[in-house]
Design a binder for these strands. Structure first.
Lengths: 234, 234
DNA sequence: TTAAGTATAATTGTCGACAATTAATAAGGG
DNA sequence: CCCTTATTAATTGTCGACAATTATACTTAA
């Protein structure tokens, strides 16, 4: 994994460790989306008791990676197109506001650090022909820094602690390691500019457009996939 | 309790019931904010095993009413002014977007139902001298309807399933059963108008202002309380 | 008296077993 | 042959006990 959740301390208890393994398995699709979870089976697989497994399952539920029903059991959440769009709309709201708050609350040192990071990535981008690196790590890194820069614990917990696990899941399962690198880079630059200008309103607007553009990019991709799957009569 | 969380099914398991009792106790302040939670003590008090209690505690953690640290234990979240403001900023982002989506996605029947509800409250408001009723139930009712009207499960879960428990907690503990009834009523009217006009942009703007106004109202109140507590030298 | 270190007590994490509920299977009637 | 009902099997919920970690109290040395 390239980047850890920056808000969580290291796993100390075995339930934590199993949670991380399960989280990875779900995000990467090793546990199929929508599939049922058998507690006895999983407990046996990880060599732990059902109690500790249930503790791990509770954490998975906290970041919306599984869903539980009383007396029925747990299922891995399923990856639907509607769910993906809903997720991006939620991101637009939350990260937009986080960006506005970052413009108000980030320290000058934090801003300088972000500018350096972006300049560093710019150098890499020019050198590397494969821009996948920036899209993956650079993008996530950028967004995390903005969110943390909001200095709003509520926003940080919601976005980093919950939404982003789902985002990564969708990214993996729908295979979106995608283009838009150069455009995204420019958009990041403009956002940082607005933040360093302490222009919260513009910063929020740009961040919302940035995420909306990403969402529309996905919608287009999916539309194309569907068109390919359903060959028209011509 | 006047209004139940509209997204959750009835509690069937004993852990669910204890969860609801604890939730009530925390929201109402019977369990002091910031206080430590003793698992053996609580389990004994509710006549259940520690396993069941821990299941209930996990649900409390899901709606951010308690915080757990590994090998140390659980504490009730504390109610700070900063936390309250952070919460309202988050609400502004999420409910603003929910309102925009409601303008796009609510059915005509849902809109008509909201208009009827508001008209009904208007009649009550004229008759009743005590406007506390509207502020309490009417306001929460209005916001829930808008959120559900977004038809966005992600937003619904985040706001109704998590944020609103904290909102109620702050309302109780800071004793905000408050004025702003008539103004809030007008604001609600305008928001519904924007929704029925299918004007998502305006609907979001108005909802954000509505929540921001509520936040500023609180800030003023707190400032006054502080001024009263610290008598100036004159 | 204070400070550090040790020993004790209390709390949290983990385990395996039993009870209650749900799902699967078999039997019977239409 | 299909649908309903009864019985069995499997899964989830709950319990009490033990292990590991943390907090408290006590002892000892400076």
């Amino acid at each position: 994994m390239l980047l850890q959740n920056p808000t969580k301390q290291a796993a100390v208890t075995t339930a934590d460790k199993v949670f991380e393994q399960l989280q990875h398995a779900i995000v990467e699709g090793e546990m199929a989306a929508g599939s049922k979870i058998s507690e006895p089976e999983l407990a046996k697989h990880y060599q732990i008791s059902r109690s500790t497994l249930r503790e791990a399952l509770n954490r998975l539920e906290k970041c919306h990676l599984i869903e539980r029903k009383a007396n029925i059991g747990s299922r891995v959440v399923d990856c639907t197109i509607e769910g993906l769009l809903e997720l991006y709309i939620t991101r637009e709201a939350l990260e937009g506001m986080a960006c506005r708050q970052a413009a108000l609350n980030m320290t000058d040192e934090e801003i300088a650090h972000m500018q350096n990071m972006l300049a560093h990535h710019a150098g890499d981008k020019a050198l590397q022909d494969g821009v996948a690196y920036y899209q993956e790590e650079g993008d996530v890194d950028f967004h995390y820094k903005v969110i943390l820069g909001s200095h709003n614990q509520q926003l940080i917990n919601l976005i980093c602690g919950q939404l982003y696990h789902l985002v990564r899941m969708y990214r993996c399962q729908f295979g979106m390691h995608s283009p838009r690198a150069t455009r995204a880079f420019t958009e990041h630059s403009n956002i940082i500019q607005a933040i360093s200008d302490r222009d919260g309103e513009l910063a929020e607007l740009l961040m919302r457009r940035h995420i909306a553009a990403s969402r529309k990019n996905i919608e287009n991709k999916i539309a194309l996939q569907k068109a390919a799957q359903e060959p028209q009569e011509t």
